[in-house]
Design a protein around this nucleic acid. Structure first.
Lengths: 223, 223
DNA sequence: CAAATATGATAGTAATACTATTATATTTGC
DNA sequence: GCAAATATAATAGTATTACTATCATATTTG
């Protein structure tokens, strides 16, 4: 049987022309992800990307307003994908505890490639999210962009997990804080383990990040 | 009686010429902080700073290698200052629980101005740390810079708080994870409450960030 | 097959993040 | 008090960035 092929819904506010609608668009996204990973966000340019895909800087600008807009697009794609995995993994689960644990697992574990989306390498995209995503919203333009809905997929994921939290403990006062602390925290811990190990307690192959946050949730929500 | 006047020790690797050693150096730091806060890190330039302080771009480059190096300098100053406050606040405290609670308070509360350091506005510097500090280490150069000790003051603060954690619960496996999760988390929550409130549960004047992380520590370390 | 649309090539712009050089203050050591 | 040393300022220059604008050439579609 064939694997399920799904499209992640993206918001048309995030681009001039939908990159999924053409071969060039897909190449922009596919190799854009590669290049941000290789060069880092700062050194990545549309000019370099144009060269890599044997296309032209000006053509890329017809899809995305700016490098920043491209990053926002990737972010939204990522969180929509996570949302899809979250919903898929928790539907038909009865126990709120199980749903929450599944969610925490998904948000803190290392990402593997998902063959359902041919032109996006989720494994690399996850690395980009860990390293670069804070640059997307730590800008002077956040408030306006937030109004335009640029961060809504991330907020939606947080809200879904919040709902699980409140199912487990309806009197807990800080569900959003807890969930965003875990998501951002897990990303930081992964980054620290690779680059600033004195700030974490990770050991190879031990999944300490997942363990730590799972235990944390249990401890915090214990009534 | 006069207030205590202290100098925060800074590492000479962080600059070409110590900015505290001259009037110009102090103006660079003082107004540099102001301008990063006003313009954001991306739009801040040494040229604009030169204009503001009626000095010259080239003169600023004689103090700091680059804008990035300037940010790293500010980060280190900030964490040295926090370390000083941490040590000052916890000396002579007997109970490990009290020391840890004091530390969490210090790391999660809103910063007020500290008149002990005339040319640095800690209130604004704290805002810069919250918004810009992740840009300092999320770069391709982290590993080399880490080797040179560019992040050691931050690591030292984390280690000090870790020591309190282990005093409270010597068998706890993830003290560094816990402490860095709290520090980064508190910064994120503050930023979210100002710009992406759907990701947090802050209400004006309620100190929810402090409460949340204090309770979290208690829950997590409960034996 | 013409018209519409997508892509490519080229050029241009203001700004950035510097480096290099030279000139002018200011400090210091004798 | 003055020369030498040092700090600062002024100016110019460079490669690159993050775009915009224009025009030419493919490709698709009705």
């Amino acid at each position: 049987m064939n694997e399920l092929q799904i499209n992640i819904a993206t918001d048309s506010k995030l681009y001039f022309k939908d990159p999924e609608s053409s071969d060039l668009g897909k190449r922009i996204v596919e190799h854009g992800i590669e290049m941000i990973h290789e060069l880092g966000y700062e050194s990545f340019t549309f000019k370099k990307l144009g060269d890599r895909i044997h296309s032209n800087e000006s053509s890329i600008y017809r899809y995305f307003e700016s490098k920043h807009a491209f990053l926002i697009y990737l972010l939204n794609w990522y969180w929509s994908w996570i949302e899809y995995k979250l919903v898929f993994a928790t539907t038909n689960m009865e126990s709120a505890e199980d749903k929450l644990e599944t969610a925490i697992q998904l948000l803190t574990e290392e990402v593997k490639e998902d063959t359902s989306f041919t032109f996006i390498n989720e494994f690399i995209l996850n690395k980009i999210i860990i390293i670069e995503s804070s640059k997307a919203y730590h800008t002077k333009g956040v408030d306006k962009e937030n109004e335009k809905g640029f961060y809504k997929t991330y907020k939606r994921v947080v809200q879904r997990v919040c709902d699980f939290v409140l199912e487990v403990n309806p009197t807990f006062d800080y569900p959003h804080m807890l969930v965003s602390t875990i998501i951002e925290g897990a990303h930081h811990q992964k980054y620290f383990s690779d680059h600033l190990p004195a700030l974490t307690d990770c050991e190879d192959g031990k999944n300490n990040i997942v363990k730590f946050y799972k235990q944390l949730v249990k401890d915090v929500l214990r009534k």
